[in-house]
Design a protein around this nucleic acid. Sequence first.
DNA 1: ACTCCTATACTTAGTAA
DNA 2: ATTACTAAGTATAGGAG
Lengths: 142, 142
Amino acid sequence: MGRNKLLMKKIEDSTSRQQTYSKRKDSIVKKANELAVLCDTDVALLMFSPNSQHLTQSLEQSKCEGEMVEKIAIYYEPQVENIMSVQEASACQQFLMSAMEQIQLSKAKVWGGEGFLQRNENIEEPAGDGSCEETNWIEAEH
Amino acid sequence: MGRNKLLMKKIEDSTSRQQTYSKRKDSIVKKANELAVLCDTDVALLMFSPNSQHLTQSLEQSKCEGEMVEKIAIYYEPQVENIMSVQEASACQQFLMSAMEQIQLSKAKVWGGEGFLQRNENIEEPAGDGSCEETNWIEAEH
DNA sequence: ACTCCTATACTTAGTAA
DNA sequence: ATTACTAAGTATAGGAG
């Protein structure tokens, strides 16, 4: 693309990598928006920035501006683990939770209406007293 | 684009809308992959198809093929609530759970190391006996 | 739904500031 | 990090099958 064709592998120079990320991030969000508007559907994007020092700046960029974002349920970038405001974290959580709710409903359908957390053998119960203080999903691996 | 420039509003003809969705879905996934590979990061996409009758077909398309997907943590399309296999649902859940875990960690950092579910005033506790059978995130709204 | 086609529209790598 | 530029690569609407 551009002047030269880029090889599809990790960009080793960190400055170039961050620049490329920044440019392509903007277009993919734009594309997601177009898809959502044109097709009247919801699109969610979760991205993890390769470069944590640009976090705050990028988080501000990810805010909705102009006609962008309208139909994007949520767009988080860059590193979720470095979110700096409770509001940001809450909004992200809320989306993830509703996505989970939808998945649980479909899973219950497939399984004949049973709840899944008690039956899902891939997710172990915490060895606690059964209280909810440490929720089940803590132990999921990435 | 293409022969004619498309107005950025909902495509009213449902056949065209589905066709556009199908085409643009493929490119946005490709873009997400490129971003993930080039920048060595994780990108997640969640899409909801405008047309549920094409669900199964689209779900099969969303499977990883060739060099695509490598760095995409998860890509679910179309309607999550209609996922037909427990495997699909489990994989999606696992990603969402790990994303949540990361968010909880950052939130705990911001809040000084406290857990968030007990303190998050936006999320009400279920009015149950405190057991985990109905998990807290059930009540999140989309 | 999918392909294949093509002209047009859009994206983008590299560069400079 | 940002903008602006531009040449070259990519995406896509509309059409046909």
